[in-house]
């Protein structure tokens, strides 16, 4: 690996870290702007001025905001996300299992949706403007246009209630056998797949169509390659950068944007956890989850950037 790539990659990572720091400031500032503070939330109705003052002293809430920010940040960096107000439990511990559940669901949704979207995109280009293209585009568009909760309920209605193939509530627990776990996530994973499929498929189609006008595609056609081979071997590798970008955005959505789907299927993931604690006004939990979501988003986008850099032969093999 040569130096220009390393420099670019290092730049991207440094930028990502900087961005994450900025986001942490925003999250902290945002929760500061909300009326009331943690002491008030903890004591609730039973607050007296004296007990409030005591608790504020105890929690260090009288320190200036920037000191509290750095105390919080220091905790986050060392893995201490604080204590949930509602349950008095350590946030890092409760998030651990749920994050894993969310990643598990996102992983399987991605394993199905990414290859499927790319293959459908290739097929759409191969039969562009024909029946197959229109069918693929139409179905994909329809599945994106339907709100995810509606898709969720449709799936539950048909596959859980009518046909009873899969459970309608995706309960998972520690030590659950792999097969049962897969059956439990089948419906939410399908719902997620349908939501992200169209975006990736259409981007793949557009990115490849963009390079189909190139002279090297003509060269490939004039070698006698079949239409699909021309697309797969000669057009696709040159369209990879925008495709990676949109794939990563959708992967981020699979982790960060699953809130609604998790709630519908009562799946014990990050989204559910977040919704629960927002309704309880549990600020430390919201801060922690927000920061994790931001980290996932930024991390995946860094990976997309780096992958796009590496996919460029001009950067990979300088003159």
């Amino acid at each position: 690996m040569s130096s220009p790539i390393l420099t670019l990659v290092a730049q991207r990572i440094a930028l990502g870290l900087l961005l994450l720091l900025a986001v942490s400031v925003l999250i902290f500032a945002g929760t500061q702007i909300l009326p009331g503070d943690v002491a008030q939330s903890i004591l609730g109705q039973s607050a007296t001025p004296a007990s409030l003052a005591n608790l504020r002293e105890e929690l260090g809430l009288n320190d200036p905001a920037y000191i509290r920010y750095f105390r919080w940040l220091g905790g986050v960096v060392t893995g201490d996300l604080g204590t949930a107000l509602s349950s008095r439990q350590d946030i890092a511990t409760s998030i651990g299992g749920r994050l894993w559940n969310t990643l598990f669901l996102a992983f399987w949704a991605a394993v199905v949706s990414v290859p499927l979207a790319i293959i459908l995109g290739l097929l759409a280009v191969r039969y562009r403007n024909g029946f197959v293209d229109k069918l693929i585009s139409g179905l994909a568009l329809a599945s994106t246009s339907l709100p995810e909760f509606f898709i969720g309920y449709l799936l539950v209605y048909f596959f859980a209630v009518k046909m009873q193939w899969f459970p309608g509530i995706s309960t998972v627990y520690d030590g659950m056998p792999f097969g049962e776990r897969m059956a439990a996530i089948a419906l939410p994973a399908t719902a997620l797949t349908l939501v992200v499929l169209a975006h990736m498929m259409r981007m793949t189609r557009a990115a490849i169509l963009n390079v189909m006008q190139s002279a090297y595609v003509e060269t490939a056609e004039l070698k006698g390659l079949s239409a699909f081979d021309v697309i797969r071997k000669h057009a696709f590798p040159n369209a990879i950068a925008p495709i990676i970008n949109v794939v990563m955005l959708n992967l981020a959505f699979l982790i960060v944007g699953v809130v609604v789907v998790e709630v519908i299927f009562v799946y014990p993931g990050m989204g559910q956890y977040l919704v629960d604690h927002v309704s309880k006004r549990d600020v430390p939990v919201v801060q922690a989850v927000g920061l994790i979501f931001a980290a996932v988003y930024i991390g995946l986008n860094i990976i997309a950037d780096i992958a796009a850099i590496i996919a460029n032969p001009r950067l990979r093999h300088p003159k």
Partner: peptide
Amino acid sequence: VCYVAQSAAAAFNPAH
């Protein structure tokens, strides 16, 4: 029959 294009720079696939 094979073909040699005007601009080989554009006619070669940059990815291979």
